[in-house]
């Protein structure tokens, strides 16, 4: 099973998914991330999926769950780098990921978090 590393940068946590994750790894990532938000006092979480070629309803639900969890833990989550083909497929699938913030790339994701969180660093 692949465990996705969680990086810390200031009060942000950054997760970059580089491999095709199986469902088990997806669930583990979800738990690891929630634990990390609390233990490291993160204010923002960025999930980079620019390398992800397939997001099905299971992975899509994970993204929505992480965003909702972060909100409850007083942090903001942003999903960055979704590929056009993935976005079109998710819309067709009927998954609009309402409530999930998105940005084109990592840099714009960081800018968005600084903006919405108003985090003074």
């Amino acid at each position: 099973m692949d465990r996705v590393p969680i990086l810390k940068l200031g009060d942000l946590l950054i997760v970059s998914i580089q491999v095709d994750l199986d469902d088990q790894s997806v669930l583990v990532l979800q738990e690891d991330l929630a634990a990390a938000v609390v233990s490291r006092g993160a204010k923002g979480v960025i999930i980079d999926i620019s390398a992800v070629e397939i997001v099905d309803s299971f992975t899509g639900r994970m993204l929505a769950t992480i965003a909702a969890m972060c909100r409850m833990l007083d942090a903001h989550a942003v999903v960055v780098g979704m590929r056009p083909a993935v976005a079109i497929t998710l819309v067709e699938l009927g998954l609009s990921l309402g409530g999930v913030r998105t940005a084109l790339d990592l840099e714009k994701g960081v800018a968005l978090l600084n903006h919405v969180g108003g985090t003074a660093r």
Binding site: D23, I54, D56, F58, R83, A85, V86
Partner: peptide
Amino acid sequence: SLIDQTKIITAASELVR
């Protein structure tokens, strides 16, 4: 096409799950 690949792979993923 890349988009159609993505669609059919996603459909396969849903169905086998």
